[in-house]
Design a protein around this nucleic acid. Structure first.
Lengths: 160, 160
DNA sequence: ATAAATATTTCTATAGTCGAAATATTTGTT
DNA sequence: AACAAATATTTCGACTATAGAAATATTTAT
């Protein structure tokens, strides 16, 4: 596939890519951040507010709102840490855990739909490609940020 | 890659996927819809409001706001159709076209970085997977919509 | 004992979205 | 030709999500 083809394909499907709420069409009205937060909390089983804000990349004040809504909907619960009473620990409720399992199932459904036509070797290769791509994308992004004028930054250069 | 690995990878990178404004980090503060609208208008060079609303999947009232902002920022322009004066035709300005070219360049930059990092075999498989993924997303979404109760629809069933 | 640091929430302003009503224009009907 | 219905779009008002600043509570350092 050449670039032109890729670009057209991207345009055709960008809309779908941009609204992943619709990927996981489970009749739940979640904002993107809420979805992220829920998945993140489930992953670590127990997590503090600052980590959530850090992970979804929003200020604490926003994170408060996101978690607040998930608590109101009954998917998460908050409690103060005993060791340090400034800290708020967030955990999924049973309802939250059930929901995440549903999401995992839907995800699995997609995974299988894509991979079922592949043989073992291809599946293995796919994993490698995936990781390579993500690595490359991260690298390019980082390089671009370093090249950005205006922002003072240390640029690492290779000495051969 | 098995499902567990895939799911972890997805979680790690979902955040990045969800905020594609940051992919195309060009120092312009665009909402997702604005980006979509701009790319869409550029693609057809000349397009009417209803098509825009349809494409980005928002009500007309929202589309009005989106285009309004892009016009204010100088990327798009509106004019009334001579043939039918109810219709508003939207076209990109020169500034808008330049911006889109920049976006295309950045996209190409990423595209090349990824394709260069892969060997022939990997590229081939990737192309296959890409098309498969998009097809699957389209299919699954469609099926889910057909299954939604309330909306009357024809459901196609396979006879074996 | 008190100042500084840390974790979080509350408050206020702002941007984007949506549905309903309003406006302007065209098409169909008699 | 006259007027109702249909179409394309915008305006208005309500609501949600987000962010920065100030406030609160608690812990750590001096």
């Amino acid at each position: 596939m050449n670039f032109e083809g890729f670009y057209d394909l991207l345009l055709d499907n960008l809309k779908k890519l941009l609204y992943p709420q619709d990927w996981i069409d489970l009749d739940l009205s979640f904002s993107k951040s809420e979805l992220l937060a829920l998945l993140f909390v489930d992953r670590y089983e127990e997590i503090i507010m600052s980590r959530i804000a850090e992970y979804i990349n929003v200020p604490m004040s926003t994170a408060t709102g996101i978690v607040e809504r998930l608590v109101k909907k009954g998917y998460l619960q908050r409690k103060r840490s005993e060791a340090d009473r400034r800290i708020v620990v967030v955990t999924p409720t049973d309802k939250g855990k059930n929901l995440i399992n549903e999401i995992k199932e839907v995800t699995f459904h997609y995974y299988r739909a894509v991979t079922e036509s592949l043989n073992e070797e291809e599946k293995k290769l796919l994993g490698k490609i995936f990781i390579k791509i993500i690595g490359t994308l991260n690298k390019v992004t980082r390089e671009e940020q370093e090249n950005k004028p205006g922002t003072t930054m240390i640029k690492k250069i290779k000495i051969e």
